[in-house]
Design a protein around this nucleic acid. Sequence first.
DNA 1: GAGCACTGC
Length: 687
Amino acid sequence: MANLPILQFEEQIVETVERNPVVVIIGETGSGKSTQLSQILHKRGYTKSGRAIAVTQPRRVAAVSVSRRVAQELGVRFGEEVGYAIRFEDRTSEKTCIKYLTDGVLLRESLSNPELNQYSVIILDEAHERSLNTDILLGLMKRLIKIRSTNLKVLITSATLDGEKVSRFFSNCPILNVPGKLFPVEIRYSSERPTSYLESSLKTAIAICANNFALSEIHVREPEGDILIFMTGQDDIEKLVKKLEERVQSLEEGSCMDAVILPLHGSLPPELQVRVFSPPPPNCRRFIVATNIAETSLTVDGVVYVIDSGYVKQRQYNPSTGMYSLDVVPISRVQADQRAGRAGRTRPGKCYRLYTSTVYHEDLMGATVPEIQRSSLAGTVLYLKSLDLPDIDILKFDFLDAPSTEALEDALKQLYLIDAIDENGSITSIGQTMAELPLEPSLSRTLIEANEYGCLSQALTVAAMLSAETSLLPGPSKSTDKKRKHEPSDLPDGSGWGDHIQLLQIYELWDQTNYDVEWCKDNNLQVRGMKFVRDVRKQLSQIMQKIAKGSLDVRTNGRRKESQEDYRNLRKSLCVGYANQLAERMMRHNGYRTLGFKPQLVQVHPSSVLKTDEEGMLPNYVVYHELISTTRPFMRNLSGGTVLSEEQTKGENPSLPEKEIGVATPDDRESRIQAARDRFLSRKTKG
DNA sequence: GAGCACTGC
């Protein structure tokens, strides 16, 4: 601890902070900035006023682990003077003077106290990662230091590359450099761009293991150096793992040390993820084939060699089509450096870049496109509107990197269509309520409507399930038990109503088992995901109760069976919340056309439980949760009316007549979109 | 008959 580089800069840091409201700290990995900055300022009296020091982190685990370490270093009881706050967990007390929190939690706090008066210092850590929430906070800090010029200090930690930019954003505030403690990493480039980075990774990895002479020397000298290979996704990882296993087995006759090959990606069950944290057996090299998760989120000890494919899979939102896409894109130079740095944590390492030096220097972008420029901004805009800051103009809000006008207008349009803002762009009372809920606006709107229709309990469940969603069902490739995969699932299928109802039915069943963990396992549902759903549902219930002053029925139904009436009402609520996300089946085809400005031709995602009727047709209209373009454009999580047989529906026909779409009938919706566009594109409103 | 990178309130 005493050796942390940052401690040599203590005087300089304190002096600079005293003289300036905002300071940028450039701290490389291992500088100790995350643990020390708060302690330094605490010792120098910044918490004497009774106000605390807040340190934001983009990730929950970081908030927890860093705060624990700080408490330990200060020798205080954890959760008292030093604590953390993350969603569902507040480990702070009235005595807390150093508080670690996720950036999202600080944003929530600022909702009820826009001046954040409880803090004397706000440290935005890892700002170079440019998380959506940190970017919003940067904009808010810029306003806040003007309002609280005498009693607020803001520190922003960043990376070398964009420290200047952050400084310029804050009127050329001073920049302090704190060196890190990384070992040198030798970079090796490919002589040409490989045609297949999978094959190229394989060759490079295997060469390190046995074939390549120069490298087998290292192999002898430093037998414990693990290899970390960056790939883009689960699919490629599994292919590469398989090939590596084959090659390693065929080579193994004592010519090289043992090898363990470990995949590492987000959809891997936690018990398999943690395998990378246990040290390898002696005389054994580990090959860790990972996604981006190993770039920042997880740190694998023992890595000495990195193989960098140069690509990453990235989700982006296109505001002109309302569609997300998941694309494999080249990484930025910042990311390339970050990946290389993973080889130098324990001793000098090597990074093999599967691209040329020219590509690195001339083709790669300097920094990754920040999340705020790749996301739908409906939630962000609603949040900012709800703060009710004086003279806030969304289209002119001062972002470090402003999103496009198109993206902002898209957000305004969407908010208008679901009654969150009025034709002047002012937030409505519905919008104000929506902003209280930690959900995307469409789901918040659905909850409010569901409350009117008397199906709030069901809507809470659906909203919570949609919040977790991807972490519920296990990954598609469970090679170990292929048989089970084809067994008919016992889980409900939505009874012909679609995916939302299926999610509701699944949760209701789990609820009836009294949240039995074994039941999840038996049904192939991720335990962690289901528990998350329960937490979210509880949180949403509490907020709804608070808003309605405690008179709502948010209980799950216990043993009562869901009625068709509930389903119908729930679907009506969804059509209000997702007024802009309806699609119409194309004549005599099972393809759909979205009912938007620029109609998109889309299909039902293969994961949907929505089925065709006896004539092979899907419902005429559907409401969908999102559009995602992968191999083709798909609608994911949708509900519609499937005409089932009399027997299946027991006399009830859950088809969706056009008029039942409510406010969102195609005609009405078109005119509202038209009106919204006219208003927002030729607007002179205050934003 | 395809498929979901990673976070977070």
